[in-house]
Amino acid sequence: MTVTQNRAPNRYLDRPAPSSLADVINTILDKGLVIDIYIRVSLVGIELLTIDARIVIASVDTYLRFAEAVGRLNLTETQTHGIPELMEDVTNSGAKGKTSGALEGAKDKLTDMLSGDDDEKDEQSSSKQRSGDGKQQSRQQSKES
């Protein structure tokens, strides 16, 4: 009789890795025991990393990038169903637009579709939008100066 490894989940076994520099800087550096009086070891050459691209999701640039990215996606490979029925959705509800100028209709419809979400979601995202606006402002300011 042969002895075999019979623990099936073994093939999923994952081993944790040691901390990387980013781990140390982003999550560990400010944690740990401190004492009252000590000699501070000065840290050099780290500043560049700490301002590492912390991209906030709510910024104008990010929105525009997402819009482009979502437009670029090629859905035909994977989306075998879904599109036809959804397109039907669009054409049904966009009927008004068709009769009264296709272009205007499309535009209205699009705005409806995007902003027609439930209200509480809008409430939730209002703070994020504010921070997005703030970004925009500061960008404009820096342009002016």
């Binding site: 929105y63 979502v70 437009g71 296709a102 272009l103 499309a106 535009k107 995007l114 979400d117 979601k121």
Partner: peptide, 20 residues
């Protein structure tokens, strides 16, 4: 389908909806 109707404001709106 109607790229001629796409304004920057609509792009923004789509992007915001995607982000959300």
């Amino acid at each position: 389908a109607h790229p001629e109707t796409v304004t920057p404001a609509l792009q923004m709106e789509l992007g915001q909806a995607v982000a959300s």
